[in-house]
Simulated scan of single mutants.
Amino acid sequence: MIFTAGWASGINAYAVVLLLGLAGVTGLSDDVPAGLQRTDVLIAAAVLFLVEAVADKVPYLDSFWDALHTVVRPASAAVVAALIAGSDGSLPELAAAAVGGATALVSHLVKAGLRAAINTSPEPASNIVASTAEDLSVAGVITLAVFHPVAASIVAAILLFFGVLLVWLLAGRIRRFRRRLRERRERRATAAVPG
């Protein structure tokens, strides 16, 4: 559950908190920590999930949003992992937080890298498709984790492996995207200087 929640948090931390909290509140799982089931936590997660659902589908805004969440997603995953592991401040709890946070960071970097590659495409449909696929995969894997945590962790590990492989294969496209952004900024700066 810790690894799976970490992987999913790297893609959409708010969905993870919301889905796990709802699984606990509705009685689908007795393993969800009480802190994730609180009404204020669920409302905040739902509102932030809706904001992310919109921001994540807009080209370039999604990359900006990902940049802002480079710290948020791993930190959220570490907190969720620590809550799942228990609240006694023990070494296993700290290790769980480290596993959740590190997994989320790798997953987040895969997502951000793939989105940078997708943003090189001139049409916005690919962003909408990618964002929807990410949301559905997070929902599916977290739901699977509630009922079959080992199977969910295997699925998450496979998705993480192929995500890292895909980013590695698309690295050239990502570099071209960054170069294009840099050139665009330089053109703006040159145009702004009176000549």
Rank of each mutant, 00 (worst) to 15 (best):
residue 4 T to Y: 05
residue 5 A to N: 05
residue 5 A to F: 13
residue 5 A to P: 02
residue 8 A to I: 02
residue 11 I to K: 04
residue 12 N to S: 15
residue 14 Y to R: 01
residue 17 V to S: 07
residue 17 V to T: 12
residue 19 L to E: 11
residue 23 A to I: 11
residue 27 G to K: 09
residue 30 D to W: 07
residue 32 V to F: 00
residue 32 V to L: 02
residue 39 T to E: 13
residue 39 T to W: 11
residue 41 V to Y: 03
residue 45 A to G: 07
residue 47 V to G: 07
residue 48 L to G: 07
residue 49 F to C: 05
residue 50 L to W: 01
residue 51 V to C: 15
residue 52 E to V: 01
residue 57 K to S: 04
residue 59 P to Q: 03
residue 61 L to T: 12
residue 62 D to V: 02
residue 62 D to F: 04
residue 63 S to T: 15
residue 64 F to Y: 00
residue 66 D to A: 11
residue 66 D to T: 10
residue 68 L to E: 10
residue 71 V to K: 09
residue 75 A to F: 15
residue 75 A to D: 07
residue 80 V to L: 06
residue 80 V to Y: 05
residue 81 A to P: 05
residue 82 A to W: 11
residue 83 L to Y: 09
residue 84 I to P: 06
residue 84 I to L: 15
residue 84 I to T: 07
residue 88 D to T: 13
residue 88 D to K: 03
residue 91 L to D: 10
residue 97 A to H: 12
residue 100 G to N: 03
residue 103 T to H: 04
residue 104 A to W: 09
residue 106 V to E: 01
residue 108 H to P: 09
residue 109 L to Y: 08
residue 110 V to T: 08
residue 119 N to G: 05
residue 119 N to K: 00
residue 121 S to F: 12
residue 122 P to L: 00
residue 123 E to Q: 10
residue 124 P to V: 07
residue 124 P to K: 05
residue 126 S to C: 03
residue 130 A to Y: 14
residue 133 A to F: 11
residue 138 V to T: 07
residue 138 V to W: 09
residue 139 A to S: 14
residue 139 A to L: 15
residue 140 G to Y: 07
residue 141 V to A: 10
residue 142 I to H: 03
residue 142 I to D: 07
residue 143 T to M: 13
residue 143 T to C: 10
residue 145 A to Q: 04
residue 145 A to L: 12
residue 147 F to C: 02
residue 148 H to V: 10
residue 151 A to S: 08
residue 155 V to A: 11
residue 157 A to F: 00
residue 157 A to Q: 03
residue 159 L to Y: 04
residue 161 F to N: 02
residue 163 G to L: 03
residue 164 V to S: 13
residue 164 V to F: 12
residue 165 L to Q: 14
residue 170 L to K: 13
residue 170 L to M: 14
residue 173 R to K: 13
residue 177 F to N: 12
residue 177 F to I: 00
residue 178 R to G: 02
residue 181 L to A: 06
residue 182 R to G: 02
residue 183 E to F: 10
residue 183 E to K: 06
residue 188 R to N: 06
residue 194 P to D: 14
